[in-house]
């Protein structure tokens, strides 16, 4: 009997507490969820390539001159994604940051209105505010959290926008094994690049989630880079090489 009474009161108290707890959240009503017919999920489908082959870790590839190299790590940041609507207005996917790697292709970007779009654009890298934010504030599963392997320069509090590393054959005749470590760590504010697909029209149709298919080709990223002699940059210690690589990014992307 007593136990029942306590349980009942507990229940009432818990209901009361729940009401109070709910009251603690933001006052504003969440915007009502639109029905599936007016909004759809948008994703990037990113193919990281080495020429005509899908990039992968630990296998030998050849650069434009037939030189062997492999990939130990390959990661890059995409941020400040903006969709351009058919009336020319811009729809920024605010706060969305993608940390891409060859092992993964689908990256969900958010829910967007159905309709015609003239195109899209994004930054390869990060804006300076995000770049110099405190990485310890993000939950471990966030793209801006400290990663393993790392893509944050802890000594200068900024992110590596694109990290490519592995081993390369540095023999003059390009006939040896890929055995010398190379690394391209490109970052620091000035190296971010706007990747512009503002005239690559697409349509998001009611009832169908949409994927923007993109290819990012490492051979194009390394266009005019001689991997035999130009095989190291932490950006600060070899700025010309970092800039050369960053300048290649737009040309390395193509619509799939």
């Amino acid at each position: 009997m007593k136990n029942n009474k306590i349980s009942l009161t507990l229940l009432i108290a818990l209901v009361g507490a729940t009401v109070f707890f709910t009251g603690c959240s933001d006052e504003d009503d969440p915007t009502p969820k639109a029905t599936a017919s007016t909004e759809q999920k948008l994703s990037f489908h990113l193919h990281t390539m080495v020429g005509n082959t899908a990039a992968a870790y630990g296998v030998d590839f050849q650069d434009a001159g037939g030189r062997k190299f492999n990939l130990g790590d390959f990661q890059y940041y995409i941020s400040n994604i903006v969709l351009i609507k058919s009336n020319g207005s811009e729809l920024p996917l605010s706060g969305k940051v993608v940390l891409a790697n060859p092992a993964r292709r689908a990256y969900e970007l958010g829910i967007v209105p159905v309709g015609n779009y003239n195109g899209f654009k994004f930054i390869l890298g990060l804006d300076s505010i995000t770049n110099h934010g405190d990485p310890t504030l993000y939950n471990a599963d966030h793209p801006l959290a400290i990663q393993s392997p790392g893509v944050h320069w802890t000594w200068n509090s900024g992110y590596i926008f694109m990290k490519v590393e592995g081993f390369v054959d540095t023999t003059l005749a390009a006939n040896g094994p890929a055995d010398l470590e190379y690394f391209y760590h490109v970052g620091m504010d000035a190296q971010k690049r706007l990747i512009d697909f503002s005239t690559s029209a697409f349509t998001v149709t009611s009832g169908l989630d949409y994927e923007i298919g993109l290819e990012f080709d490492l051979l194009e990223i390394l266009h005019n880079v001689d991997m035999r002699t130009e095989n190291e940059t932490h950006t600060f210690n070899n700025l010309p090489l970092a800039v050369k690589i960053a300048d290649n990014w737009q040309g390395a992307f193509s619509i799939e």
Binding site: K5, A17, F20
Partner: peptide
């Protein structure tokens, strides 16, 4: 063993104050 009502009021107060 019998002051259930007072106990319950206290209990409820505590939960509400937490909430």
């Amino acid at each position: 063993r019998r002051g259930d009502f007072r106990l319950n009021v206290v209990l409820m107060f505590m939960l509400l104050s937490l909430a």
